[in-house]
Write a protein that binds this DNA or RNA. Sequence first.
DNA 1: CATGAATGAGTGTTCATTCAT
DNA 2: AATGAATGAACACTCATTCAT
Lengths: 220, 220, 220, 220
Amino acid sequence: MVPTLEAVAQPRQRRKEARPAELMAAALELFVEKGFAATRLEDVAARAGVSKGTLYLYFDSKEALFKAVIQEGIVPILEEGAGLVDSFEGSAADLLRTLIGEWWQRMGNTPLAGVPKLMISEAGNFPELATYYNDAVIVRGRDLMRRTLQRGIASGEFRAVDVETAIDVIFAPVLMLLIWRYSLGACCGIAHDPQAYLNTHFDLTLGGLVAPTTRTRAAR
Amino acid sequence: MVPTLEAVAQPRQRRKEARPAELMAAALELFVEKGFAATRLEDVAARAGVSKGTLYLYFDSKEALFKAVIQEGIVPILEEGAGLVDSFEGSAADLLRTLIGEWWQRMGNTPLAGVPKLMISEAGNFPELATYYNDAVIVRGRDLMRRTLQRGIASGEFRAVDVETAIDVIFAPVLMLLIWRYSLGACCGIAHDPQAYLNTHFDLTLGGLVAPTTRTRAAR
Amino acid sequence: MVPTLEAVAQPRQRRKEARPAELMAAALELFVEKGFAATRLEDVAARAGVSKGTLYLYFDSKEALFKAVIQEGIVPILEEGAGLVDSFEGSAADLLRTLIGEWWQRMGNTPLAGVPKLMISEAGNFPELATYYNDAVIVRGRDLMRRTLQRGIASGEFRAVDVETAIDVIFAPVLMLLIWRYSLGACCGIAHDPQAYLNTHFDLTLGGLVAPTTRTRAAR
Amino acid sequence: MVPTLEAVAQPRQRRKEARPAELMAAALELFVEKGFAATRLEDVAARAGVSKGTLYLYFDSKEALFKAVIQEGIVPILEEGAGLVDSFEGSAADLLRTLIGEWWQRMGNTPLAGVPKLMISEAGNFPELATYYNDAVIVRGRDLMRRTLQRGIASGEFRAVDVETAIDVIFAPVLMLLIWRYSLGACCGIAHDPQAYLNTHFDLTLGGLVAPTTRTRAAR
DNA sequence: CATGAATGAGTGTTCATTCAT
DNA sequence: AATGAATGAACACTCATTCAT
């Protein structure tokens, strides 16, 4: 955000347009850091460089602020994911790798990385937020996974697993990687290298754990 | 808790000794149900059948109660798992199934089921407790997984995956099953059948997603 | 408010001059509707079609606006009443009926109808304004009543009641009719028909006010 | 409330029993003085000599406190009024005088005197309170008036006026006497002598209410 | 040991007022 | 003159903790 001459000439106006984004960025940081309930709106405002009242010029309530953070931060990622699934031309396995890899790039390496842990922590006490998150993020994300798995099964590339269950089984390690980082991993325990972790995950999920010989026998 | 003669004869004495355990049991239920911050000590005391002040006779603070709940509840769980790994005589795959199955029986169907979600939520606010949990539970649990995977690799039953990573990748879906139940699953989203979920997990992890033909080709 | 040529030719100028009156009209409506404290200046401004800041160009504060509303709204009312008493030629009883009837027309069916309740509610918080209202409205209104009662007593039409007290006793039901409408009557309780109410009031009061001889004649 | 030896020995206990009454008394004073909305619960607590939190041990909310004040303060008065109407053996006119006289003793000379003005001021912004007051006080009070008027009409002592209207017409001056005292009368204007005011009111009203024959007799 | 009355710090939200544009 | 973005004081209600009994 380079301050241009024009910006200096109209700081008030520029501010007004930038405010919501600044507030959402500050809110995301604090929500992730302290949780939804423990985050004080005054701190959010202060981190964005405004007063408490100003926050209410742009967001009707704490919950509205939270929803905006999710809406602006995560929904676009899922929309790109939908575009990816629509247009992808390689194998289903490659699509799965790409989909999760992209998701990781957009979420895992950004301030949004703390959102899954945040939602898990607060869902019980804020059912409305949980419902919103479910509808806006989880349902859509699962849809991308479902289409990917169904494509692989339809083409014969994948075995005919129970898709609805497989969606969550396959995505669980990816989520846990983030959840771990923002919970127990933050103070103790091992810190996985994300790439190695994801590779092992793909390796296991796509290839299985059992050695070829054994498997062949087991299959008989 | 069989009432003995002695207990009946000295109910007040018995009561006094049982109080901490009753309070911890009540606290566990409420912490799991509402989270740490949202649990009111008055409710804990009421559920244990004592007054608010009495709770402070046994625990110095809400945090101290939380620590005690985790310590008393979790430690005893993993002892048995170690015995199982030591004495198991079947294939490594069967041991993996059995180990996770047992864990599910001891955790997934008890009041302790909510602990993983609880720890994830509160780890950030209680680093000391997180460290304790890591040492007492996670390190030991990972050790059981490590020995199981190493046994399979050593015998040629499993491929030579990166064990430290695989431990978490493989256990992640099991944890997520519980975490989901106590967070977003409680108010929206699908509710998986645990057995079907775990079966799909074993199926994928042990067998992989890719169909035999394709895999063979992919392996070339 | 007929738009004149000049007005059309200089709308901005006209606007500027009309602003205070438009703001006061909007404020009166809202003060009457919601009370002083619960009225938001933003709503007043919006109803007058200007921005919040503009309001402060014309009134120093919310209190100043309130004072202006009362002053501009009430003062003009009582002038006509004085003329009526001066020129009325019928019986004192008829004058009393006419006086109250006129007052009802000018107040009870206009936005000013809520002012008595408003003044009663806010007098405690605005003693200065209460004093003004007392001098400008109440003293003058009581004077009209006083002259009416005195005329009837002097002519032998009314009994020699204590005039200063009778003024308020007689006017109280008229005021209560309005006060009720703007307070508890708004959400519950019976809604009187004003004409029937006033008729019953005259019936009772004149029954007790009129001197026996006169009454006997009137009854024939 | 003389402190007895026992009281000194058990101040804690005595306090607990006295607290609600002390809080309600403090609340009544402040509600009357500042209005419901403008009264801070912290001030109520301070005036009762306790902290903010203590108030919530006895009353669930500000509205609950208000309802309790009305319930404890006014409802008993109306119940006595009902007893009076039930057992009164004199003329209807005497009953009317006695009823209003008693009401005045119980309300007009106590801290409750400010309640009618209070309710009128706050009814618009707190419809729930208004409804409660209507049901608990106004409906019952009007019932006493109704029975009194009907008794007089049935016996031929009163003329056959429209009872529902007459109830309010007759009671209005009594209410206004109090309302005035707690609004504009507090800072300016005349202060009526209540007895003289009520006498003039009875004089006028009964003059118009009493049936001709009865009146003639009464006049002798 | 046990009670429960009492405390008071803590926060989301509203809105009158100001002032840079 | 007119705007509307920004401010910050104000308040009901909760609950962990204390302590007199």
